[in-house]
Write a protein that binds this DNA or RNA. Sequence first.
DNA 1: TTGGGTTTAGGA
DNA 2: GTCCTAAAC
Length: 635
Amino acid sequence: MPVARPEPQEPRVIAHVDMDCFYVQVEQRRNPELRGQPTAVVQYNDWKGGGLIAVSYEARGFGVKRSMRGDEAKRVCPGINLVQVPVARGKADLNLYRSAGSEVVAILASKGKCERASIDEVYLDLTDAAKEMLLQAPPDSPEGIFMEAAKSNILGLPSSDASEKEKNVRAWLCRPDADYEDKLLACGAIIVAQLRVRVLEETQFTCSAGIAHNKMLAKLVSGMHKPAQQTVVPSSSVQGFLASLPVKKMKQLGGKLGSSLQDDLGVETIGDLLSFAEEKLQEQYGVNTGTWLWKIARGISGEEVEDRLLPKSHGCGKTFPGPKALKNSASVKSWLDQLCEELSERIQSDLNQNKRIAQTLTLHARASKENERDSTKKFPSKSCPLRYGTGKIQEDAMKLFESGLHEFLESQNTGWSITSLSVTASKIFDIPSGTSSILRYIKGPSSAASPAIPDSSSVPDDPSLDNNVHVTPIHEEQCEPSISEKEDGKRYSSISAKQCPANEEKRIPKKLPEVKGTSSILKFLSRGQSALHEKRKSDVLICSPQGPGSSSEANKAEEHNVSGQAADRSNINSGGEPSGSNPWLFNVEDIDPAVVEELPLEIQREIQGWIRPSKEPSTKRRGSTISSYFPPARS
DNA sequence: TTGGGTTTAGGA
DNA sequence: GTCCTAAAC
């Protein structure tokens, strides 16, 4: 349910930028012969020609719709070019479009706060830039307005023909007698026009945009004049605009809530909402949603533009419709392996390129039982701490699946079939710059010179340091946690030394001190050059993923692993290596527990306080202090 | 076979 | 914290 946010007092300048039929444009850049032609991007094509996921404006002219199949599109537009989404590991591979989206974001983020809203949309908060322009170089003459800005659409600005429209727009954009708000908006429109031109020049992609005083209005109009145009919403035109806007067009009202508004309250347009008291809306939809509805009817939306250029999670999934449904563990496993392979690759590049670590692995599935059409029961999603390494992710995902399947079947002996599978990596945190690896903490700065693929023998102890933990890199399948099934069905992971050949000589930790209830741990430790209490800080990052079975309440996980990662190494696994071989990720099972016990008490206490961050860090500052990233440990 | 694959958000 | 649903593109 939507929630109203407190709105800032000062007027803001917010833009929503939306790429025009983005996937098509990406394909047209790859193959310029497709430019100007009716084109659509389809994924898969064996069944009815594949599903359309993007349609060029030329094809739309023929009546081609996104809801169509390839065959249908061919029927209404025989000349259409159907381009297939790349397939990797038996599933659609969207990486091409993701990276094209990043190119655009990189440009749009240059003028102010930028929020990646989806693969092809961003919000911008241009308030500061607009104020700056108003102060330093306000638009003053109609002729001085450059073309792209002059082609803007100003909501509520009347004009009879095209040439008069442009004249009026030019005049509006530099009206000396305008309100402060309108002047800011005019500057915003100019900035957005400049940005859109840059996007086109540097990526060959066109986009459309909305410019308004809040996200809601910017979003509502960004698609109003497409393609390759922008629309401005002056405050004076808001009420008139909303008065006739069908409720379903409003973001958040496209589904059940919007239907309920129509069916239960007889509300057809946003304007119709004005006749309902806030209290009335609250009793119908709850306090939060009620207030939200009351406000949007008045064009009020306090939602802020988040400063975030990267996605908050990574997921991959695939559906297995009808006859393709998976009916045994072996086929589930092989598909899960494929999905996990892709996921692993993606979180690995996120780590390498963006210095971010994901903490949670979640498995979703849809299932039905044999003989039971419309089995109401849902397949429960399951999650666990995310451990880096393709093999580990595959292993953990399969365990999650099995656990979900048990619950789904409720010990009935019926057959089942899986119609969709997906795995998601979430709770992603920045590794702040200036951190060094667990190696550096444990072994001192010299360890930075470790070989690309070190093993325990190549990382000799340094007797000059009082800390001498043995660390070996993760090798795929090298150290396998054994999962034991208890009577209650809960799983507990444990590790035995003999399963970990590289550590035969070492004692494997039965448990790492008091890392309880957590899935993964990110924690800085401070230490001085030689003495741990020295003021000078050289930060150490440690993250500690466990596996399935260790994340929930009654959990008595007996063992935990830690992986540390050298964030400040420039050549950190550059270029997306197979995840299992990142020499800068370590598992705690590879660390000699005796050494942990030998750590200074101060550090041992720190370790005992390790706990996953309870909330999103309060700020997104990079390189800030420990406490601002990680709230104080509880227990 | 419900456009498929993702991503985000809020509430229980 | 986990899991679910709604919604969007």
